[in-house]
Amino acid sequence: MTAPLKLVAVSAGLSVPSSTRLLADRLAGAVRTALEGRREVEVEVVELRGLARPIADHLVTGFPGPELRAALESVEAADGLIAVTPVFSASYSGLFKSFFDVLDREALTGTPVLIAATGGTARHSLALEHAVRPLFAHLRAVVVPTAVFAASEDWGPGGDAEGLGPRIARAGGELADLLAGRPPRPRTGPEVVPFEQQLAALRAG
């Protein structure tokens, strides 16, 4: 039996409740729906709001704390990624960028990624194409064609049916199609070399 795929959604929302987290949850739900009957999927959400200080500490010291390490390992082990940021100053948030700055540079190579963003007005939607998509292209991820932007009016009456809902379904379907034929990543941890063996190798050198 094929092991379930691991889908990780990274949300950089700062408020509680957060429209950024809401969008991440809806996108994950769309991927799960699109994979029904094809593959099982396990969804994990990484909230960056609670990791702001550990991320800053890592940028200064070069060492992640246990909470940040667990989040980074989850993203590194993901078969697919949903990345959602609020738009600040016409770009991704500093918290969002900082998290991916401390991620291993090879971690997302070949990983299917769905990008999304939230903002007060649709005028900020271009941030997905001029900032977020190039970031994941630099990390050598495989970014799905449809990026999803949710403005404030998209959450109001009628906004979802007219635009946001179909965009979420389309983007979720694109990510699901990339994941459907993908073998799950190995879930084994790093190889542990006994200390005696390491010491013997040093003496031999």
Rank of each mutant, 00 (worst) to 15 (best):
A137L: 12
A9N: 02
Q197Y: 01
G172F: 00
L164M: 10
V113S: 11
L59K: 07
T61I: 10
E162L: 14
R69S: 11
G80D: 12
L95K: 00
L178V: 14
A30K: 02
A151T: 08
R167M: 03
G29C: 07
A30F: 07
A169Y: 01
L95N: 00
T33D: 05
S19P: 05
D177M: 07
V102I: 10
R32H: 00
R39N: 06
R133G: 05
W155H: 08
W155V: 07
A107I: 10
G163N: 15
G94L: 13
I55A: 05
V41M: 04
L103A: 09
L103V: 15
A169Q: 13
D160T: 00
G13N: 04
V41A: 03
A56F: 01
S152D: 09
E36G: 04
E174S: 02
G29F: 02
S11Q: 04
L59W: 07
L7S: 05
P112H: 09
R182E: 09
T121P: 03
V31C: 01
A83R: 05
A77R: 15
G50K: 10
R49M: 03
P134C: 12
F99M: 08
R21H: 08
T188A: 15
S18Q: 12
I168C: 09
T20A: 06
R133P: 09
E40H: 06
S91A: 14
P64N: 01
A9S: 06
A70V: 09
G110Q: 14
P190C: 10
Q198D: 09
F96T: 14
A147D: 00
V144G: 13
W155N: 13
S91P: 11
V84G: 03
L128C: 11
S93E: 02
A28E: 06
G205H: 08
A127Y: 08
T111E: 10
L95P: 01
L199M: 08
L68M: 08
G159W: 01
A151Y: 05
P184N: 09
G163A: 12
F63P: 00
L72V: 09
T111A: 05
L164R: 03
G50D: 15
G120W: 06
F99L: 03
G189K: 12
T20H: 05
T20Y: 02
A12I: 07
F195G: 07
L51N: 13
S15H: 02
I115N: 07
W155Y: 14
L108Y: 13
T146H: 06
V102S: 05
A56N: 02
A117T: 09
E73G: 04
P183G: 01
P17E: 09
F63D: 09
I55Q: 04
V113A: 11
V192A: 12
L202N: 03
G110L: 08
E36A: 14
T85R: 05
S18V: 12
E67M: 06
P186L: 01
